[in-house]
Design a binder for these strands. Structure first.
Length: 413
RNA sequence: CGGGGAGUAGCGCAGUUGGCUAGCGCGCUUGCUUUGGGAGCAAGAGGUCGAGGGUUCAAACCCCUCCUCCCCGACCA
């Protein structure tokens, strides 16, 4: 992609009223744009990142045998009455009447909807187990939005739902998700802390939260300096157990639940088991805040100059910066690299703007592509170009001819 | 919803004991010179001063009402 043809309206200064690093950088790097509080557009660069994160999630979900589908956002409130969650989730549910006078809502989550599908299609134990998931927009009328896309009223979530004939099967699926979650976050450059947690309005018995420590957190954890034990902060007081406890702010990225039969009972999702008896389907549900995940990645992968994308989520693999676009030799070489690398499957951003070097370098730091190829007259005189590593800041001079191999080596490692 | 802050050009801000044609920096347009860390000179464009009402000869500034955004709390991915 050529910078001049892409849409990257970077901002020099952090917009007014922003405090969180990820909030400022996501706006400055033009990943997102606020329409109103808690409602964001994903601009081209941000959308590329979003798709990268989604694809990591898809790969890991598919790898453990989950099937992707897409559920509607528009729900008749009738469905929610069956579980009583039209009342328990009333505060955050966006409701309205359609022109037929039917009471509707925009889906804040999808247990009721997926269970309706299970009810209609699953009749036999032979159809179990099965796990379905989607990556989709949720709507929650949050009383308080926070830090840009960290807590929004319209946000993107991966939600998976497992259906089993017994608890043993559920535990198996739960563990598969548990391990997949660790892989997903790791690939996103994060090292999550897992704690067992309350299941809250979701219901069920066992649940685990995946959090990362970050200043934008909305939760607190107690970490035992001696044993390394981690507990969720429930009432603000240090745990009574021995040892010295440190309080850390953390942000929740994922939450998995062993639901049991709460939804299948309420909606009549039953199957005929091998013994000829009708039983409720045993369910689990597994969520990841995809858009929030992006904020967490930025929060934990940045420096004073901008974002430092982990390779797998970066909007581009490499950014080529010809220092002087007006220099024919530089520009020609830049275009050659662009062609060669692109045809090798490398996603390249070529900054072909006729701007000063300083501005192009600063923008490159800001948008945080992992590797930068700098083409300047000074180095070309020695038949060399440079590769700058965004994370380490190290610059390596390589011969013109070796550039492609050097980049491939890095982007494929 | 309770508490605190803030709305003046695309962005960041000044101007507010009422008074001339509403300013500055960045960005934007045109031309020339530049180009290794947010370049220089010159000439330009761009504003319902968040909205409505009131006081006044006169309101960005004073009064009333409302809207919006940000931060802290209760809740969540």
């Amino acid at each position: 992609m050529y910078w001049s043809k892409f849409f990257i309206p970077t901002l020099k200064e952090p917009p007014i009223g922003t405090e969180a690093v990820s909030h400022q950088l996501s706006l400055r790097a033009s990943l997102v744009h606020m329409l109103t509080s808690g409602v964001y557009s994903y601009l081209p660069t941000g959308y590329k990142v979003l798709r990268n994160v989604e694809n990591i999630i898809r790969q890991e979900m598919n790898a453990i045998g989950c099937c992707e589908l897409l559920l509607p956002s528009l729900h008749p409130i009738e469905v929610w009455k069956k579980t009583g969650r039209d009342i328990t989730l009333k505060e955050i549910m966006i409701t309205f009447d359609n022109k037929k006078g039917q009471h509707m809502c925009l889906g804040p989550t999808h247990e009721e909807i997926i269970t309706t599908i299970a009810k209609d299609f699953i009749q036999s134990y032979r159809q179990l187990p099965v796990t379905l998931y989607q990556i989709q927009t949720k709507f929650r009328d949050e009383m308080r939005t926070r830090f840009g896309i960290v807590r929004a009223c319209e946000f993107i979530m991966k939600d998976a739902y497992s259906f089993d004939r017994d608890w043993e099967g559920l535990k198996k699926n739960y563990n598969l998700q548990f391990n997949a979650y660790n892989r997903i976050f790791k690939r996103c450059g994060l090292d999550p802390i897992v704690v067992s947690a309350d299941s809250g309005a979701m219901g069920g018995s066992i649940s685990h939260e995946f959090l990362v420590t970050a200043p934008i957190g909305e939760d607190a954890l107690w970490v035992n300096a001696d044993s390394g034990e981690i507990l969720k902060d429930e009432d603000g007081k240090a745990p009574l157990k021995p040892g010295s406890w440190d309080k850390k702010i953390a942000i929740e990225l994922g939450h998995i639940f062993q639901l049991g039969t709460k939804y299948s009972d309420a909606l009549g999702a039953v199957f005929l088991d091998e013994d000829g008896k009708q039983k409720p389907i045993i369910m689990g549900c597994y969520g990841i805040g995809v858009s929030r995940l992006i904020a967490a990645i930025i929060e934990l992968n940045s420096d004073g100059n901008g974002i430092i994308w982990p390779k797998e989520v970066s909007p581009f693999d490499v950014e080529i910066v010809p220092v002087q676009v007006s220099d024919g030799v530089s520009m020609e070489l830049a275009e050659t690299y662009y062609q060669e690398l692109s045809s090798s499957g490398v996603d390249v951003l070529l900054d072909d703007r006729d701007e000063s070097a300083g501005r192009k370098f600063n923008d490159a730091d800001l948008i945080g592509v992992p590797y930068r190829v700098i083409i300047g007259k000074r180095m070309l005189a020695q038949n060399q170009v440079e590769i700058k590593d965004r994370r380490t800041g190290q610059i390596q001079a390589v011969s013109k001819e070796a550039l492609k191999e050097e980049i491939l080596k890095r982007t494929r490692s």
